[in-house]
Design a protein around this nucleic acid. Sequence first.
DNA 1: GCGGACTGCTTACCT
DNA 2: ACAGGTAAGCAGTCCGCG
Length: 768
Amino acid sequence: MIEFFPLDIDEIFEDNESVIRLFGRTINGERICVLDYNYEPYFLFEGNKEDVEELMITKEDITYFVTKIEEVKKKYLGEESKFWKVYVNNSVAIRLLAKELKNKGGVYEYDIDFCKRYLVDKEIIPSRLYKIDGEIVKKVEYNVDLVVEVKNIEQNSESFEKERILAFDIETMDEVILVISFYGDDFKKIITWKKVKGEGIEVVDGEEELIRRFVEIINEYKPDYLVSYNGDNFDFPFIFERARKYRVDLELNVDGSNIRLNRNKTRLIGVLHLDLYKFIRKNMAVNLQTDVLDLGSVANEILGRGKKEIKFEVVFENLDDNIGKLCDYCLNDSEITYMLCKSLLVNLEELGKLTGLSLFDVCRASYGNLVENYLMKRSREFNEIILSKSGYRMKREKYEGAFVMEPKPGFYKNLVVFDFLSLYPSIIVTHNIGLGSFGKGKKVPGLDYRFDNKKKDFIPLVIEDLINRRRRIKEIMKNEKNKVLDARSYALKTVANAMYGMFGFIGARWYYRECGESITAYARDYIKKVIEEAKKEFEVIYGDTDSVVCILGNKTKDDAFKFLEKMNKELPELMELELEDFYKRGIFVSRKDGGGAKKRYALINEKDEIKIRGFEAIRRNSSEIAKEVQKNILKIILEEDDFEKALEYVKKIIKDVQEHKIDINKTVIKTQITRGLDEYSSVGPHVAVAKKMILNGVEVKPGMVIRYVINKGKGLIREKARLLEESEDYDEEYYINNQIIPVVEGIFEVFGVDKEKLLKEQKKLGDF
DNA sequence: GCGGACTGCTTACCT
DNA sequence: ACAGGTAAGCAGTCCGCG
């Protein structure tokens, strides 16, 4: 008997049969590969047995056929009935044979990745401990300590903790790799082929040798996790390209084979390549302050420490003298990546344990992947059929979303904000919104849909479980903070919150527009009711989706708590309104075209913390100078309640802009390119600049942020837009009239300083 | 051919 | 490729004027 932690899984074919391989580490720290020859591929069929029995296809000399048929009872959307479990000779046969049966009855569970299928059926969660019985076999080509042919696999509960981590980074110039560095547990390494003296720097003969060493070091170190920052799209494709030039084999797979380059992910068999940039971008970014996701900014925010910066132009100009600096820089990047991994690992692990995905997949999983995998995993215990993906062929239908109350513009004092705790998940559970309960039962407010609340449906039950688990964790954490529990709570929240979006996402297995539509209908109903009730006590200023902003007026804080208590008594058990905070002051502004502006306000609480929403001050595509001015006037107004001081401040800044005293860096406007440049039907300034960059031989890809300055000149704005590096001076009129005035006028308007008054001020200053 | 009013595209935000 | 709701800047277009 062996105890081991499976970390990675794949499938190989031996004699045309599917074999599952699990890679991981034993409890004693040995690297292990577990082979399972006994797992049989299958799909489900509802129809005549005769239609299945003789099923067979031959394609390119390979025959695909049925090996066995069993009758099973399964639930389809909560209704139990009989299905044929059709076993086939290998995993490729699943789709091929299922397709043949499509017009003869119902086919199910034919589009599930074979490895995922295995993990679900065997109830294996990567990184947990398992006991196995089996025979040790020899596989010389495998870079592992032992290979076992498994007979029986059984769950234990412990989690993998002694992971071996190795982070790496490369530095390149003119399409050549100069330096590679590694940082691991008590391990540091810098390799370069440039002549350099320095402690711990290994100098090799050339780039080819550098790549060979890269492979050797990883294979010697035997990491469980090989960590990069954007390795999928930069480091690995680069290394791959250079290795091809020298015909160097990248034998990094644990089974001795070469790694294959995939278009957008690099997978090493048996070693988990964790691309932290992917994880940050797809998962963590929404919770970060920074909107730039480069290693430095992210490390700064998450680790509280920045990274070393160097001037590449200077280094590259005189490489021989500066190669030492580049080596240092490279190692520092690996170190930061390693530290980042240490810090994020608990989140990756908790998401992995919850959803059953390997950390390789967790790193790259969208919210949709996470929630869907979680449902696939849970479907087994409910004996529910895993629905198939079909949505991509359907047309997406939009439906009505949240309610947003138009605010009354003004400057207010003594505010209180209430909001619902996990509104959408709690609605799903309370009103049993699922695919199996749809049809008859209680009517959805404002819609002609009904959901039966008698028998709890699969998805509501699963979410209820998520909510309850999270509540218990929060309860425990009231007494003591705990990193693991915190990450678990994050994972539970992330999956629960993504469930609503999944109902409306056409590509999801459990896509069901009516469910999404009903959730938002209930949400509108609830928030409107709270607003109505609140109006009886306070003046309600604003509301968005699940929150309500009120003026306390002549009421006390105690009254606010009493109102909260009263509401929670009336609300269904799982639904809960919370008192988010009290605010000393707050400002709500008008829209440019009249009426109150939704999703744009600023509040200050009693700890003097300012909360700005929607304003240019927090938008990327405004210039720093405009953002700074807006932030500062909001600060003066909210903290000191002194709009005249704010006005004086703006006048001073406008004067500075007029006199070109502003640092040109603060006039940069950053706008993202979101598609191929010829796909734009409207050419804005950022697109015009990007087009010029292409002409200069710079590669522009979707996702890239263009940084430009508006220069003096004639014509359209895009004709005056230039890259920062190509700008000598800014157009003061543009920055005053199009950047500064627009972001402050709405705020001053609240204090009765109208646009004309502001423009007059500006003219006077212009004359000056 | 020109300028103002309006429309639609685009980005980046809010919940 | 989880959802819908929203503000605002700029380009593009339409229309009247003469």
